[in-house]
Every structure is written in C-alpha cells, then in structure tokens.
Design a binder for these strands. Structure first.
Lengths: 194, 194
DNA sequence: TGTCTAAACGAACGATCGTGCTATTATCGC
DNA sequence: GCGATAATAGCACGATCGTTCGTTTAGACA
C-alpha cells in the first residue's frame, strides 16, 4: 500500500471515529487535521470534497459492519444459531469495544439524514435496506414455518438494538445489555411457538 | 402576552421545527433569523446565548410532549387502556402530523448528545428518565401481576417506537405504522398471558 | 544515486458562525 | 399623546468553515 493510501485510511479511520458522536456535519476538516497532526490542506488533498470524504467514511463503515457482524456469523450453522450470533455481534458493534467506535455510526447517520436528501442519504438507505433484507433471510431460515412473519421479526429486532443503544449510550443504564438479550430471547420464543 | 414574549415563542417554535432534522448544532442563528424575516441581532436579544436558546427549545419540547402524549391519556381508565392510549399518542408524536415537527426531537437529541456532556444533555437525560418512569408505572398498572417486569416492558416498548421512527422517516416504509402497532400488541399479549 | 512524481504544507479566499455594542424604532402605562 | 422602556436593527469583531492555490518536501523507481 502506497504512502498516500495509508494516510487516506488513517484519515477515514479517525473521521469515522469522530462521526459516530458528532455526525457528518459535526466533523470539521480543520479539527480532523489537528487530531491527525497534519495540515488541513494536506488532508484535503486526499478527497475531492468534504462530501466525498463522508461517502468514503460511510463505505468503509459498511464494509466494517459486514466484516464484524454478518461475516463471522456465517461460520455458525444455518438457522437459529446463526441468527443469534448475528444479534450478539450486532450488540458488540453497538457497544463498540472491539471496533473502538463508541456507538453505531449508522444510527447517528439515520438521524442526521432522515430529512436530508442527497447521495449520502441514498447510500445509507441502501445499506440499511440491505441489512434488513439480510436479517429477514436469517429469520426465514430460523423460523421456516413462519416465513411470512420474517419482516415483522426484523422490525422488532432492530427496535431492540435501537433501544439498547439509547439505554446504553445516553441513559447509561448498566442493565441495558441484559435487557436487550432478554428482549431478543422473548422475541425468538414467540416465533418458535406452535 | 407582551410583544417580546410573542416573538420569543415564535423563535422557539421555528427553532424547534428546524432542530428536529438538523439537531441543536445544525441550527444557526442567522438562518433562523432568515426564516423568521428578522435580523440576527434582534433574534439574539431574546436569549443570553445559543445554548440558552437550545435549553428553551428543549424545555418547550418537553412541555409539548407531556401535553400531546401523556396528558390526554389520563382521561382513559387506569390500566391497559391508558397504556395503549399513551402508545398511540407516542406514535402520533413521532409522525408529527399534529405537531408539524416531522419527527421526534428527543430521538434527534439523544443521538447528538449521547457523548456530549453539559446542561442540555443533563436535561435531556432527566426528561428521558422521567418518561421511562412514567411508562413503567403505566405498565405496572396495566399488568399488576407482573410488576417486576415493567422496566423490561418499557425497554421493549421504546424499542418499538425507535424502530418505527427509523422505518417511517428514513426507510419510508409504508407498513411501518402497522408493524409498530402489531409489535405493541404482541408485547402486550406477552405480559397479559398466564 | 538522480530524477520524476506523489504527498504534504502554508497562506489566503469568501462565507458564515456566535456574540457584543450602539442606535433606531415600536410598544405600553399614565 | 407623551414619556419611559422594551424590542428590533445595523454593524463589526474574532474565529472557523470548506476550498483553492503555489510551493516545498518526501517517496519510488530507473
């Protein structure tokens, strides 16, 4: 990897970390350059615009999410076990201990770009739909007798994750993780019944 | 009401509307003044600082939330019916048709101030805890035999609301409302069983 | 090692940010 | 209606924003 590509990755890495809490509008190129101990213009030379940097961050985040949440679960056997693994990886992703990102950047951007059209929103929505589709397929495999309810399952599972992030990051409720796991188990047992 | 108090309310009103989608950092006093067809300094004279304006917005939002969600439900009989009314009002609040706020400002601020200490975060957290406590009490009244599970119920119900906002505002899923209602009914029937 | 190209820098741009100050205008009690 | 006072406007401030420029430093390959 060339020198330029290396620093470009470092920029994206640091920018991604800051974006989790500050959002894409909250990060500044000057502040970023300061965090990386380099000049603002030197940093800017790696991207055509701030929006191009934001898109690069989002693309990198999507890749990391798949790498951290989806992919490792594929080692598990198809069905409930795989679904459970994805959920646990998802909670880990939200906690951010392993990715040192404290929080889920997609939840930050979902708020920021709910009412703001443009290429960033488009990519974000596309990635979210892809994620929901993937979850839906996992649910169909886990509950083959209730394939038509997989979309509803996805809706509720995402809700558990969102509630977890809010309880954990904002309220700082120490029982948030336990509550999320318990909610997931109840959700599962509901779709297993009959 | 004096002239000053009137325009102060208009400022807060417009600022609140913009804050839902842009967040508290995203609103600018210049832009706000432009939207209200008044000078930036004329607007600024009503508040000691931008943060004071933000606090005023949040206080007003809390008051409106109670007025729109909590209070009307008190007309319903104690128990499940009242709990259901609160949930429905909550969904209305998130949709924002009646408050013309498109979206729940608390969800926007929850993201923005998760990792940003200060008086705004303090007030936001306090209001959220109050909201959770209120929901918990409603759940205890609705399911008297499962009083120790009321906190878990609250966690999951908030998750349904969060998932609804995401599906409705970001993904624009037309079945979001139905999914939320269905999730709530399943949640209720779980706590009613036995 | 010398040369060419890539990478980083420093300075400056116009614009906008939040925040003061002073002056002008409108409101309200007598 | 007049005078005191509240409300709004105008202007400028230092700072920071994203962006562009020309220059200098560093890396990569011959």
């Amino acid at each position: 990897m060339s020198k330029g590509e290396t620093t470009r990755q470092q920029i994206i890495n640091e920018a991604m970390r800051q974006s989790v809490s500050l959002g894409f509008e909250g990060i500044s190129l000057g502040g970023l350059a300061g965090s990386l101990a380099m000049s603002k213009s030197g940093l800017y030379a790696h991207f055509k615009s701030k929006e191009a940097l934001q898109l690069a961050i989002l693309e990198e985040a999507i890749a990391r999410f798949i790498q951290a949440v989806t992919k490792p679960a594929m080692a598990k056997p198809k069905g409930l076990e795989r679904l459970r693994a994805v959920f646990m990886n998802y909670l880990d992703w939200i906690q951010g201990d392993k990715t040192d990102l404290d929080g889920c950047i997609f939840m930050t951007l979902a708020q920021e770009y709910s009412g703001k059209p443009g290429p960033i929103r488009d990519l974000l929505v596309a990635s979210q739909q892809q994620w929901r589709t993937a979850l839906q397929q996992l649910a169909e495999q886990a509950f083959p007798t209730k394939r038509q309810d997989a979309e509803q399952f996805t809706f509720e599972m995402i809700g558990v994750a969102l509630s977890f992030q809010q309880s954990w990051k904002l309220i700082k409720d120490p029982s948030a993780l336990q509550r999320a796991q318990q909610a997931f188990e109840h959700l599962i047992s509901r779709y297993q019944s009959e």
